[in-house]
Measured scan of single mutants.
Amino acid sequence: NMECRVCGDKASGFHYGVHACEGCKGFFRRTIRMKLEYEKCERSCKIQKKNRNKCQYCRFQKCLALGMSHNAIRF
């Protein structure tokens, strides 16, 4: 039983190089595919399941810091 490295929810698998839940997987995919840019935040918000949708900037930064990558495809 793995935990999502981004928000701590139950991970659904290994997505983009990191154990992640469906919510964070979809969030990362949409951000990359649609080339979304979020308003910069300096607060280093703590991303948890209950508040993961509050600060998209910090959520995406955490995805990147954990090594999530669009190129991380498993063979």
Rank of each mutant, 00 (worst) to 15 (best):
K62L: 06
R29P: 00
C63M: 10
Q56F: 10
Y16S: 09
C7R: 01
N1W: 03
C24S: 01
D9E: 08
L64G: 01
A11R: 04
R52G: 12
G8F: 02
L66N: 12
R30Q: 13
G26K: 13
N53E: 14
G13E: 06
R43C: 09
K46Q: 14
R59M: 12
L64N: 00
C58T: 00
H70M: 14
A11Y: 06
N1P: 04
V18M: 11
G26L: 14
E3I: 11
A65R: 10
R33H: 10
G23D: 15
R5T: 12
I47N: 05
C21L: 00
S69Y: 07
R52V: 14
G8H: 10
R30V: 08
E39I: 08
N1M: 13
Q61D: 02
A11I: 08
V6F: 04
K10V: 12
K50I: 15
R52S: 12
E37H: 10
C7E: 03
R59I: 01
V6N: 03
S69K: 13
G26W: 08
E37M: 08
K40W: 05
V18Y: 03
I47C: 04
G17N: 07
G23V: 06
A72W: 05
Q56L: 11
H19N: 13
R5L: 12
A65G: 08
C24T: 02
S44R: 11
R33M: 14
L64V: 12
F27Y: 00
E42A: 08
I47F: 07
S12T: 11
R43T: 08
M2R: 05
C45F: 03
K62N: 05
C45N: 01
G17A: 04
D9N: 09
F60Y: 07
L66F: 05
E37A: 09
G23E: 15
R33Y: 12
E37Q: 12
N53G: 11
V18N: 05
G17F: 03
L66H: 05
A65V: 10
Q61W: 02
F27I: 00
V6R: 01
K10L: 12
C24P: 00
C21M: 00
D9G: 08
M34G: 11
R74Y: 10
A72M: 13
F75T: 15
I47E: 07
K35C: 12
R33D: 15
M2Q: 05
M68D: 02
E22D: 09
F60W: 12
E22T: 06
G8T: 04
M34Y: 09
K46A: 12
V18W: 02
E42C: 05
I32N: 03
M2Y: 09
E39T: 11
H19C: 13
G17I: 01
A65C: 06
A72S: 13
H19I: 12
N51R: 05
Q61T: 06
Y38V: 02
E39P: 14
F27W: 02
C24V: 00
R29V: 14
G67P: 04
C4E: 04
L36I: 15
C21Q: 02
T31A: 06
A20W: 04
R74C: 09
E3K: 10
K10T: 13
C41F: 05
A72F: 07
E3F: 10
Q61I: 07
G67F: 04
K10M: 09
Y16C: 06
H19W: 12
C55G: 01
M68E: 01
V18I: 11
R52T: 12
A11V: 06
K40Y: 10
H70G: 13
N71G: 11
N1S: 09
R30H: 10
I47W: 06
K25Q: 11
Y57S: 05
L66G: 05
G17C: 01
C45E: 01
R30Y: 11
C41N: 00
R29N: 14
A20D: 00
K40L: 10
V18S: 04
K40H: 14
E39C: 03
V18T: 07
A11W: 02
E42Q: 09
N53F: 10
K25C: 12
K50R: 11
R30W: 09
S44L: 11
I47V: 12
K50D: 14
E22L: 04
C21T: 01
H19M: 14
E22S: 05
G17L: 02
L36N: 03
R5G: 11
A72E: 14
L64Y: 04
C55W: 01
L36R: 07
H15C: 11
R29K: 13
Y16R: 04
A72L: 09
Q56A: 14
F60D: 03
K49A: 12
G26V: 12
I47G: 07
G13Y: 05
G67D: 05
N71K: 09
E39F: 06
N71T: 10
A72K: 08
N1E: 10
S69W: 08
I73N: 13
M2F: 05
G13P: 05
D9R: 05
N51W: 05
E42V: 10
E22G: 06
F28Q: 01
H70K: 13
K50S: 11
A65S: 12
R74T: 14
S44W: 06
C41R: 02
N1T: 12
A72T: 07
Y38N: 02
C24I: 04
C63H: 00
M2S: 06
N1H: 08
K35L: 04
L66T: 14
R33K: 13
Y57I: 00
K50T: 12
K62V: 04
C24L: 02
I32S: 04
C41Y: 01
C63N: 00
I73P: 15
R74N: 12
R5P: 05
F75W: 15
Q61A: 10
R74A: 14
G67V: 03
N51A: 08
R30K: 10
K10C: 06
Q61C: 03
V6M: 03
Q61N: 05
I47M: 09
G26N: 13
G13R: 05
H70I: 15
K35E: 13
E42W: 06
F14K: 12
S69N: 09
H15W: 13
L66Q: 13
F27A: 00
Y38C: 02
E3M: 10
G26R: 10
A72P: 12
K62Q: 06
A72Y: 08
F60P: 01
L36P: 05
L36V: 12
I32D: 04
C7H: 07
V6D: 01
N1D: 11
K50W: 11
E3Y: 08
L36A: 09
